[in-house]
């Protein structure tokens, strides 16, 4: 493959669009995203309203069937998908951004800065997320998905910070950082233009893990009743189906859509990550 003789940005897209893994991953994520955005407009039912007979299998009227309470599964699914994207993006995004900041500064500056940030990281790791959520649950009687996402995000960054720190540390000793320092560049600029791009796929991987982690953490919280007091999530759907013995009763349409969506979404993110690695790394690209 001959890259076109144009600017670097175009070249990135040139290779990106020819990478099957990246393209497939993107299509899947995009598909769910569209689903989550326009899905609610396709249904005339309300979330918890009794829309029809109980335990109906999928049909022309109830696309994904109904629950034991006669709620429309499709409606719950599309709203749940929305909630999953919100938790993943806000929670995972927050954790990644905070983790990145802390990791970059600790790794690049070393010394005292590193010591202090390390102390902070370790402190946050040792505070149990559950206890904090219990306290928050006690004070906030009405909780939404956003609150849940922020709490998850603020308590999940330390792992990202540790990973970013050690990567930064090893990149910092490479000569090209010295070359950049010898232009008198500020350390902020060196971090953003020299170190961060090298970790793009790595940061994305971190985000993928945090995204998946946040969605799963939300599901866990939902399970023990610390989740949102209003709304629905894929986790809540699975939880309800489990509580009402959907598996034993063979009401597969209740738990398969949320479970499959969670698996596909996280799987697609992972596939994108592998693809991105190939696109970003010119050496892998040639093989």
């Amino acid at each position: 493959m001959e890259p076109p003789q144009s600017k670097e940005k175009n070249e990135f897209f040139y290779f990106a669009l020819r990478n099957n893994k990246l393209v497939i991953g993107l299509i899947v994520v995009f598909f769910f995203l569209v689903f989550a955005i326009i899905g609610p407009f396709l249904t005339e039912h309300d979330l918890n309203e009794r829309a029809g007979p109980r335990n109906q299998p999928p049909s022309a009227e109830y696309w994904f069937g109904t629950t034991t309470f006669g709620q429309d599964v499709f409606t719950q699914f599309v709203y749940g998908l929305r909630a999953a994207f919100i938790v993943g993006l806000v929670g995972g995004g927050l954790a990644t951004i905070v983790g990145m900041m802390v990791g970059f500064f600790a790794g690049y500056h070393g010394g005292m800065v590193d010591e202090l940030l390390n102390m902070l990281t370790n402190t946050v790791i040792t505070i149990p997320k559950l206890a904090v959520l219990l306290v928050i649950a006690a004070y906030l009687t009405v909780r939404g998905v956003i609150h849940e996402s922020i709490v998850i995000g603020l308590w999940s960054w330390p792992w990202a910070a540790r990973a970013v720190r050690s990567q930064t540390f090893s990149l910092k000793s490479r000569n090209f950082i010295d070359m950049a320092r010898m232009t008198g560049m500020s350390s902020m600029k060196i971090i953003w233009t020299e170190i961060a791009p090298n970790m793009m796929s790595y940061l994305f991987m971190t985000f993928v893990l945090q995204f998946g982690g946040a969605v799963l953490a939300a599901a866990t919280l939902d399970f023990i009743g610390l989740g949102p007091t209003e709304g629905i999530s894929l986790g809540l759907m699975m939880q309800h189906s489990f509580n009402w013995s959907a598996i034993q009763l063979g009401i597969w349409w209740w738990f398969v859509p949320p479970g499959a969506a969670l698996a596909l979404l996280v799987g697609a993110m992972y596939l994108m990550n592998v693809g991105l690695d190939e696109v970003f790394n010119p050496k892998l690209r040639e093989r």
């Binding site: 670097e8 490479r174 000569n175 090209f176 010295d178 070359m179 020299e194 791009p197 090298n198 793009m200 970003f280 790394n281 010119p282 050496k283």
Partner: peptide
């Protein structure tokens, strides 16, 4: 070391 003086992901 000439190779490590270049950021490997850029030209």
């Amino acid at each position: 070391e000439p190779f490590s003086a270049y950021n490997p992901i850029f030209k």
